[in-house]
Design a protein around this nucleic acid. Structure first.
Lengths: 231, 231
DNA sequence: CGCAAAACATGACAAATGTCATCTTTCCCG
DNA sequence: CGGGAAAGATGACATTTGTCATGTTTTGCG
């Protein structure tokens, strides 16, 4: 657990303290679907009709900049919910959600979720906590984008990916396939810069590259380069 | 109302729909204080003991980067509350709050506020909405920091300041005194860059400078330079 | 009022980063 | 399995932006 700018992760679940009736109500009304890699759960600009719960799989949430460039806002893992921000503030989606691999996703209709919010205070409070954690994450990340050079941001992003998605059996290969472009859109820089820096990290023995697979070989050194925030 | 990255503003109040008893309870327990310009309401890293309501005056919320450089996270105006994020997630403050001018501030003790949250669902729901709006703001701002050049960011920031704090009687002079360094820490760049760009904007007739006073002379042009997000 | 400190301003320069062009490799789909 | 498209890689270069040095102006306070 690095005290880095992506520190949110490890949030349990907004339903962790829900009443049995709440869980039953949601189970009754949820609609589960299978999505292939690269499919879109929802689109930036659309109005939300419900909440998405990621049962299995990985998802990216990305926002389009003025010139159409993608900025990846959050990485979402199995067990997380998405789409709540727009739902709560009765607003359009601020980003599109696209699966990074095949995924099983449950949809909880808006009315059901809003009803749950009214009948089970614990869900509301947990949701408030989740929003708070994400707000903190976003605000720390603001600082990091404004103040850190690309090299440090990449190191930190690699650590963050490990923290979010973990590793394969070998305990070093990041358990997600992201293109260089996607990494660039997460770090907030040009794809070429990422390609150059990754091969530099590779040459310097911090990571090992094998196609889209990235192994974290020397984590201590990466942490040093990342120049992380407190803790 | 620009659809810009600082679009939050115009949020009314988390107590707008509160019950009379709620208001009474808060009024009974609140502690009001006067703060001189430059005084600190709370410090990054400390644990929160309550919520701050800004009755009059202006406040900046800033986070320290790794090398000790200030990043201004939010600008707060009279009528806003601050300190709720840390309170909700039972976390340390992620930023320090400092007055930008003399201010009257009410303090609502933690227990009182948490009790209100339990007894008046409207406050919780409004707080959730506020958090949602701020999260959106922060995530749009992430994109803007990652993708826009300093010139565009400065133009947008000037418009944002106008939107947040408004103007003096003349309807063009921004109603707040910020140092060049503070503007730089809001935009996320070096002070010298801001000084150069401001005098460039001045020369080109978009703004007029008079010490710390900044007049928005040609707003249309500024909007054009800012290259704003949708709407 | 006058002085010291802070803020503002400006130039010169270096470093970081983005862009463009081109080539190679990998991946996907029929 | 093969061919085309996408992704990855690399070099040359321009641009943006930050840094440092230095001078000027403003501000606050005894």
């Amino acid at each position: 657990m690095y005290g880095n700018c992506f520190a949110q992760s490890s949030y349990t679940s907004i339903f962790s303290k829900a009443k049995p009736e709440t869980v039953a109500e949601i189970n009754k009304h949820k609609i589960c679907n299978f999505y292939r890699k690269g499919q879109m759960l929802f689109t930036e600009g659309a109005f939300p009709f419900g909440l998405y719960y990621i049962k299995t799989g990985k998802v990216k949430l990305s926002h389009l900049g003025q010139d159409g460039k993608e900025q990846i806002i959050r990485l979402i893992n199995a067990g997380d919910v998405i789409g709540y921000r727009a739902l709560i503030s009765n607003d359009r989606y601020n980003g599109s959600a696209v699966t990074l691999e095949d995924a099983n996703v449950c949809f909880i209709p808006k009315e059901v979720f809003l009803h749950v919010l009214q009948t089970d205070a614990s869900v509301g409070f947990e949701l408030m906590k989740l929003l708070s954690v994400e707000l903190k994450t976003a605000e720390i990340r603001l600082t990091y984008l404004a103040q850190k050079p690309v090299r440090e941001r990449l190191a930190e992003t690699l650590l963050f990916i490990k923290q979010t998605y973990g590793c394969e059996q070998d305990a070093v290969t990041l358990d997600v396939r992201l293109s260089r472009e996607e990494i660039a859109n997460l770090v907030g820089t040009a794809t070429e810069s990422i390609i150059r820096l990754l091969s530099e990290f590779n040459k310097d023995g911090m990571i090992a590259l094998d196609g889209k697979k990235i192994k974290i070989v020397n984590e201590e050194e990466l942490i040093k380069i990342a120049n992380l925030e407190n803790v």
